[in-house]
Write a protein that binds this DNA or RNA. Structure first.
Lengths: 154, 154
DNA sequence: ACCAGGTTGTTGACATGTCACCGACTTCAC
DNA sequence: GTGAAGTCGGTGACATGTCAACAACCTGGT
């Protein structure tokens, strides 16, 4: 093996800043959601695609693909949300292995109550501090990194 | 209350991309670390500042400040790493409330074995796909967001 | 029809993170 | 000095995430 490619000081700084934003932004959003609506970020992540689908029903597989979660994590989270009355499980007509997840009335009320404050929070923390040019380049940067990560995992 | 400030389609796309990068990049790094060195990302996060400090010792408070963790999370993680022989706890001479965390020989070997591959991974996934200009602007963007988050939590 | 191999969702064990609280100690105003 | 208030680290209960294994089912070639 050749000499390791250590990070330069500039790179280290950017990398540390990225990890800090990841941590602090996540924390800020968890707290805002919990405080204003009693929902966790995980709850919100599942409720959002459900509320946008016709009849508030999605096959578990589709829901998992929407949020990019593994099946196990999804199943556990659905169980917890089912216990709190936010969603229900139903059999899948097409495929007897499958399972459908349905938004309850309570679940719909919860997401609709939470959405405006959540959107305002994202605006304030992410988009208000950026110029339109920066938003565009930020999107490009994310695309490039995502491409590298996907190439990496294949 | 006035009309909620919903995200525009462009904003939604950038925001979804950010969450995806957060998730996939984290997953890629967890797996690389675990596979190549048997360390978790949490292990690495604590071992790195410890290995850079003189004698491999830091007061728990300092270590917590370095990584930006709460005291409870830090304490639990140190307990787990102590059990695996990566660090030890010692009394703090200056302040009887305090507790010092010391890297063991095994801990130092682990971080030194893990560091080169981890650096290479960050280079490949984050910096290789970006131009120097993009890296600079990415840093600015992170600064702006961090500023907004900090203003928000005070 | 059959069955080998892939898919789907669930479960239990375990690792990790959060929260509320405590006990010991330090700091500071008086 | 002394007491109130703050700081520090740790703990237990619980929420969340990961992993390996499983049962049930679908799909394709034969």
């Amino acid at each position: 093996m050749s000499e390791p490619r250590w990070l330069t000081p500039d790179q280290s700084e950017v990398w540390a800043k990225y990890r800090r934003v990841r941590r602090e932004l996540q924390r800020a959003q968890d707290q805002q959601l919990q405080r204003d609506s009693g929902l966790s970020a995980a709850d919100y992540a599942l409720l959002a695609p459900l509320s946008e689908s016709p009849d508030g029903v999605l096959r578990a597989r589709e829901l998992g693909a929407e949020v990019g979660w593994e099946r196990s994590r999804l199943s556990h989270q659905i169980s917890r949300m089912e216990k709190r009355g936010l969603v229900t499980r139903e059999a899948c007509a097409d495929d007897a292995r499958g399972s459908m997840v349905r938004l309850t009335e309570k679940g719909r009320e919860a997401i609709e109550a939470a959405a405006p404050a959540h959107a305002e929070n994202v605006q304030q923390l992410v988009f208000d501090p950026l110029t339109p040019d920066e938003v565009r380049i930020f999107g490009d940067v994310l695309d490039r990194i995502l491409g590298a990560v996907e190439r990496n995992s294949r």
